[in-house]
Amino acid sequence: MMPRRSYDQYCAVARALDTVGERWTLLIVRELLAGPRRYTDLHADLPGVSTDVLASRLKEMERDRLVTRRRLPPPGAAYVYELTPRGRDLLTVLGALAAWGTADLGEPRPTDAVRAHWAAVPLMRRLAAVPGLPGGVVEVRLDEGAFHIELGGTAPSYADGPAKSPDAVLALPAGARALPDALGDGVAEVTGEGPLADALRGAGARSGGIR
């Protein structure tokens, strides 16, 4: 592992970038926000990263107390990486970056890899901004697959794949994952019964979007 480079500036922004400014670090955080992941799973969902760079970044993130590594109990018996509380605090940073970067997203390029759960961070931020939205589990369905978001508690969280018993299902057609206001652009459809589904439909109705 290479010694950590520093900007050597007495500034909170510079100190933060000393820790998370290396290439791939924040994208590893994005993946681990969904929960513990094996090295092979991380590598599969980070197209373009070499095995050496991924291993190096994970060691650096362990050193900086952003992630921990532990062994799963049998029958799994595999090692997984997971975020520490300090690592999870980067959710707000990624949410702000996603909101800022959405304007440059546009249509997918021919060389772009796509994963459904990459839409989770910006959508969590959008859902958290809906006034009076109750807690519960929202399953999000995209052409590329599905993930689910759990609302309530201190901060929203997400996991890859469908939910076992979602309180609401939010279906977004092709291209909608790139929209900054998917809930209000007339492209989202909500199904389900109960307070959470009703609140999502109500939010869309107020903004002219969800049906």
Rank of each mutant, 00 (worst) to 15 (best):
S157M: 05
G192E: 11
M124S: 01
P108S: 09
G136W: 03
P156Q: 14
G145T: 15
P110A: 03
W24D: 10
T102G: 07
L97G: 07
A16F: 01
R65F: 11
S207Y: 02
L97Y: 14
R125F: 12
E193N: 05
T68H: 08
A171D: 11
E139A: 05
V80P: 01
L127A: 13
A44Y: 11
W118M: 00
E62K: 14
M2C: 12
E107L: 09
L27N: 08
C11V: 08
V93N: 08
A77T: 09
S207H: 05
A171G: 14
A78F: 00
L183E: 00
V20R: 10
A99K: 05
R201S: 02
L172C: 08
S6D: 12
Y10D: 11
A197I: 04
D64G: 04
G152P: 02
E189T: 01
A96K: 07
D89M: 15
D167K: 06
K59S: 06
W24R: 01
C11K: 09
E189Q: 07
C11E: 09
L83D: 14
R63Q: 07
R30P: 07
V53S: 03
L27T: 07
L72Q: 14
G184F: 05
R69E: 15
V93R: 06
Y158Q: 02
G202W: 13
R5K: 09
V121Y: 07
L27A: 09
A128T: 06
M124K: 07
T111E: 13
D45Q: 12
L179T: 10
T102D: 06
A146Y: 03
S157V: 09
L142F: 13
Y79L: 12
T191Y: 12
